[in-house]
Amino acid sequence: MTVLDMREVSGGYSTKEDTIHEITLSVKEGEWLGLLGPNGAGKSTIIKALLDLLPVKRGEITLPGPEEYAFIPEHPIFFEDLTLWEHIDFMRAVTGLDEEETTERAEYLLKLFRLTKVRNHYPTAFSKGMQQKLMIILALTAKPKLYIIDEPFIGLDPKAMKDLLRELEAERERGACVLMSTHVLDTAEKICDRFVLVNYGTIIAEGTLDDIRRESGVDGSLLDCFDELMTEEEL
């Protein structure tokens, strides 16, 4: 079953010029889709369009209800006057999650990501990596149908990266799906089922790794294929 669907979505930050052009993509139950491209390719803009944060957009977007998807942003967003645990409590209250189940899940994730000792501290005093872990814990605690993740690995230590990937894989096994934007192609190649490669706000290739290899004419890694496709675009 398709959980997320974008059809011919174009738009930008003003009416004068589009930043993304006729973007069409979908994510099915249990699937991990990698939204890939260099810095400035339009990945974050596509996510803003999905979340209805892009001022000007056209096309059709189908998402589950707000309580059924979670967004992990590239730059952590939090309330300055709430502690880490108060963020979890606030999320639970807004989404209507069961208190006992939420507490048990959150306690497990705090221990996994080594934040138990700072549960009553304010995130303003955290490092970038710790703030990112808070965003991850909030999303994973909610157990939504869909995870929308923008550059999740920035600021994370190797153990936290591995723990995040393991938890998301477990979520996929229960049927959740993931849309992940990243420019870390070697990691994406190992974990994603399909890929959408973007440059200058336009999709330049999509499909499985075998599809991308056929389209690029390169029988190599995802990075090799992307490099070839980028070179063709510049010629």
Results as ranks from 00 to 15, higher is better:
Glu22Val: 13
Ser44Trp: 03
Ile23Val: 12
Lys57Gln: 10
Gly65Ile: 13
Met135Gln: 10
Cys225Pro: 03
Met180Ser: 03
Thr187His: 00
Leu140Pro: 05
Val198Phe: 08
Asn120Gln: 15
Thr45Asp: 08
Val9His: 07
Gly65Arg: 15
Leu51Arg: 09
Ile46Phe: 03
Val9Ala: 05
Ala176Met: 06
Gly175Leu: 01
Pro144Lys: 01
His183Tyr: 03
Thr83Glu: 14
Val184Asn: 00
Ser221Thr: 02
Leu185Asn: 00
Gly201Tyr: 02
Ile46Asn: 00
Asp157Cys: 02
Pro158Ser: 06
Gly11Val: 04
Val178Arg: 02
His87Ser: 09
Glu74Asn: 03
Arg172Gln: 04
Glu100Pro: 09
Ala139Arg: 02
Glu228Phe: 05
Leu4Trp: 08
Asp81Asn: 15
Ala41Cys: 07
His183Ser: 05
Ser216Cys: 12
Asp186Lys: 00
Ala106His: 10
Pro64Tyr: 13
Arg213Tyr: 07
Ser44Gln: 05
Arg174Asp: 10
Lys48Gly: 01
Lys162Glu: 01
Glu100Leu: 12
Thr124Lys: 14
Thr208His: 05
Asn39Asp: 15
Thr231His: 11
Ala142Leu: 14
Arg213Ile: 08
Tyr147Lys: 06
Lys28Val: 14
Ala170Val: 07
Thr208Ala: 03
Pro123Tyr: 03
Glu29Leu: 05
Trp32Asn: 04
Ala170Gly: 09
Gly12Trp: 00
Asp52Asn: 15
Leu140Ala: 11
Ala125Ser: 15
Arg119Leu: 11
Asn199Glu: 15
Met91Phe: 13
Glu17Gly: 11
Leu36Trp: 05
Thr182Arg: 00
Asp5Met: 13
Arg214Ala: 12
Thr208Gly: 02
Phe126His: 11
Leu36Cys: 05
Thr231Cys: 06
Arg166Phe: 14
Leu25Lys: 02
Tyr108Leu: 14
Asp89Thr: 12
Asp210Ala: 08
Tyr122Met: 13
Arg172Leu: 06
Ala170Arg: 12
Asn39Arg: 04
Thr208Asn: 05
Glu233Tyr: 10
Asn39Phe: 10
Tyr122Thr: 09
Gly40Pro: 06
Phe90Trp: 11
Ala93Leu: 10
Glu80Cys: 07
Glu169Pro: 04
Asn39Cys: 08
Val178Ala: 06
Met91Gly: 08
Glu29Ala: 05
Asp89Val: 12
Tyr108Trp: 15
Glu171Thr: 06
Leu33Thr: 11
Pro38Ala: 13
Ser10Arg: 04
Ile77Thr: 15
Gly59Asn: 09
Pro152Met: 04
Glu151Pro: 06
Met180Lys: 04
Val3Ile: 15
Glu169Val: 10
Cys177Ala: 15
Ala41Ser: 12
Asp150Cys: 02
Ser216Ala: 14
Ser127Glu: 07
Pro66Asp: 10
Thr102Gly: 09
Ser216Pro: 10
Gly220His: 07
